[in-house]
């Protein structure tokens, strides 16, 4: 916001050699007060989420709700159909023979939970999203092999091109680049 070009910038992206320096840098960046941050790595790095100060995901709760919805659907479906809609006596069993409803209740619990887990995970992650400005980082294709990246976005209130770059360089980055929002914009 300070310069006319700041709006066209996505943020400052630093590349690190390994998980240790990335973790140290993430701690440093959080302690410096940055909040609009993210890290990119080819493997899940343990402790990175805490180092960046990211909140715990609500995904587990969503999956629990999915599972409960599945169980309720299974129970309601079978009870309604077998007791009220289509009451047929089969081998002398009572209409509300709930023990024989358990397998389908179980299967639907699993099915709905799995849908909640997968669609919840991709939904909360905002995927599919074919384009993201971070892909403009030079050498970012290594993020899926052995490159570790830390990004401070330009919408962070503390973002300042010179100071942010200096901080990341001090943290041990091998390369720091200011990345544009659009690939054709000049840096």
């Amino acid at each position: 916001m300070k310069q006319p070009t700041a709006n066209s910038m996505y943020g400052m992206v630093a590349e690190f050699h390994d998980t240790e320096t990335l973790l140290k840098a993430a701690n440093l960046v959080r302690e410096a007060g940055y909040t609009a941050t993210d890290a990119f790595s080819p493997i899940p790095v343990h402790g990175l989420v805490e180092a960046l100060g990211i909140r715990r995901s609500r995904l587990a709760g969503i999956v629990l709700c999915g599972g409960l919805a599945g169980a309720a659907t299974g129970f309601a479906l079978q009870t309604y159909l077998s007791v009220f809609q289509y009451p047929h006596v089969v081998s002398g069993r009572p209409l509300f023979s709930w023990p024989s409803f358990v397998p389908i209740i179980f299967e639907l619990t699993i099915l709905f939970s799995a849908f909640a887990a997968v669609f919840g995970m991709f939904g909360l992650n905002g995927l599919p999203k074919p384009y993201d400005p971070v892909f403009n980082t030079p050498g970012f294709n290594r993020a899926s092999t052995d490159g570790f990246f830390l990004c401070i976005q330009s919408n962070d209130p503390k973002y300042d091109p010179a100071a942010t770059r200096a901080l990341l360089e001090k943290a041990g980055a091998v390369q720091v680049t200011e990345v544009a929002k659009h690939p054709d914009d000049p840096e």
Binding site: P44, L52, A117, N125, L127, K129
Partner: peptide, 16 residues
């Protein structure tokens, strides 16, 4: 699907 290995994404991914 635009996977970029974000730390937030990995967190949810591992839970899922």
């Amino acid at each position: 699907m635009g996977w970029r290995g974000s730390a937030r994404h990995w967190q949810r991914y591992e839970i899922a």
